[in-house]
Design a protein around this nucleic acid. Sequence first.
DNA 1: CATGAATGAGATTTCATTCAT
DNA 2: CATGAATGAAATCTCATTCAT
Lengths: 187, 187, 187, 187
Amino acid sequence: MNEPGARDRILAAAEELFADCGFDATPTSRIAERAGVPKGLVHYYFKRKPDLLTALVERLPEDRLDPAHVVVPGDVAASLHRLVDVLDRSLDSSAMLSHLLWREADTHPAVLDALRSRFGRLVEQIRAVVAAAQPRCAAADVDSAAHLLASAVSYRHSVARHAEDGQDTMHRELRFLADALAAGAGA
Amino acid sequence: MNEPGARDRILAAAEELFADCGFDATPTSRIAERAGVPKGLVHYYFKRKPDLLTALVERLPEDRLDPAHVVVPGDVAASLHRLVDVLDRSLDSSAMLSHLLWREADTHPAVLDALRSRFGRLVEQIRAVVAAAQPRCAAADVDSAAHLLASAVSYRHSVARHAEDGQDTMHRELRFLADALAAGAGA
Amino acid sequence: MNEPGARDRILAAAEELFADCGFDATPTSRIAERAGVPKGLVHYYFKRKPDLLTALVERLPEDRLDPAHVVVPGDVAASLHRLVDVLDRSLDSSAMLSHLLWREADTHPAVLDALRSRFGRLVEQIRAVVAAAQPRCAAADVDSAAHLLASAVSYRHSVARHAEDGQDTMHRELRFLADALAAGAGA
Amino acid sequence: MNEPGARDRILAAAEELFADCGFDATPTSRIAERAGVPKGLVHYYFKRKPDLLTALVERLPEDRLDPAHVVVPGDVAASLHRLVDVLDRSLDSSAMLSHLLWREADTHPAVLDALRSRFGRLVEQIRAVVAAAQPRCAAADVDSAAHLLASAVSYRHSVARHAEDGQDTMHRELRFLADALAAGAGA
DNA sequence: CATGAATGAGATTTCATTCAT
DNA sequence: CATGAATGAAATCTCATTCAT
């Protein structure tokens, strides 16, 4: 009784096919076929093919949450921990979609724009949580913290395009490995 | 006098256009146009369009190096440091190419295979350096160290598809940020 | 008012052009042109060019007939005569089509298969007529008679590929000619 | 030491491929490949692709024979029998080639012309044998006999295009089959 | 609202042929 | 003589999009 409507079936089909074959290599006719709807209906709901992509952006979990649910007044660390836990839980449900959108963002400005504005909303949200947990924080600090955390979340949400942070991680690993090997060899 | 041959001009044009527009959205005719060659010549050198992609894989810097140049006998850490420095230097020259290949690997198995076999060769190379620097290391340790390091290099080379290691990094960052904010707020 | 639909006009055009120039030497664009339809419509109805050939096979007169119309109970010879007369009449209407299909069967397995299954249906039909005319015939005799007659009909329908039976005919002709010449010369 | 020259290898390769795939569907590059010669050499020996077809016509056994070998003076029948035996022996060696040429004759006037002129020479040859065996024959009789026999030979040589003569054969078979079935049923 | 036939621009690919070496 | 890179015309096929019903 709760079977999804044609529009939703089309979007679900598009998501699968775009993930597998890429946007450009997926004909709208194949989307219609997989969704089990006539070809004309795809263009009835989505006048141009790229509209499917922008509609998919809106399918991303909004990561909207009531700050009151996570804020621990006076404890920023605990508040952020709880925030990240909530955000993380919504990640897994949209891993494929996030990955495909991010891949297409390179070549589809509309997707890039959408992802960017999503990012902006995420920053705002974090800022709100921090402000609620610790109202006396300096605005500039809150800003950069919110931005950093939004980056980290988005990074894991869709895989970072540029991995500038890998440097330290790598040298730490490097030292660790060398030590471990030296220890093993010395034994 | 040393102007590149037609085949190279075609590959260079393909690299630029694939990076900008994506593989599927780039007509071979546009590649020919930008390379300044007739359309037929593209297919003379590359029977099928995806062959351009696999040819591009071979254009990645081979990261081949003479182990003797980096090995510091008895000092694995220093050897690896020097190895990574050398590998890093070749990264920058192919950042765009690496990124585009990795993006297309999702939908082009041939590219994925090529990148995978490249990875295998990289592991071998690292193993050789470690073995030369410290011959008494346990084989299993050398194996895992080589694999870890190859992963890290490839990750930065083309952006990891799955960032399983991000978890710890993130919680460390999180704590740091909370502390920093608390300290700032307390001042 | 009864003007044929686009699909039929395409097939008619293909039949004419294939007969004149051969399958491979006929561009689909010329078929569209002669049929008075846009190029894309040919591929809308016939995904691949060889599909035109298999569709053409189905245009052959089916040689289906109601056994009751030709069977003379108790008289196999008369029944078969009437059957052959009926089959012959449908031959002339498709002489060109039959010839072209048989020519292309050499290089298009799909056509060969289709012609073969048509042949099988023809055998069944003859068997049915014989059985109705003379129910007491031995099954094996009916089988071979049906096969022989189907061969002869198909042979004239589309020209036999191998003329194994020509041997006797020829020696008979040869003797006849020699006799005729000898008689003429002796006069 | 007797290995065939490049030109012959090209023709042999063309014969095989034309027989399998048809003239139009066989690229010259594939002919070169199968012949084991560089692509340019095919066009070096055969400026245009259809020249391969006309060269193949000349590869047909010429059916030239010294009338003295078959003529039995005064016995036309015996003379023709011996002539046909000789001609038959050359058939088997070129069955594939004959078949493919005849198939392509429909669409390649040059082949049709070549086959026609071959036919003319065959008629002349037969006429010469008849005339030598029985010089007093009426010219008109000799003409028609020669033409009939040349037809029969060519028919078997390459399969007749239209089988107008099948009618009688068929009704004879028909009567025979009906009789046979009636006899079998009556037993 | 929904449909699928129709359209035509344009993509990939093939290939005979030329020609400089 | 022989070669294979180069050429470009043309073929097959794809597909987003439109539109009459």
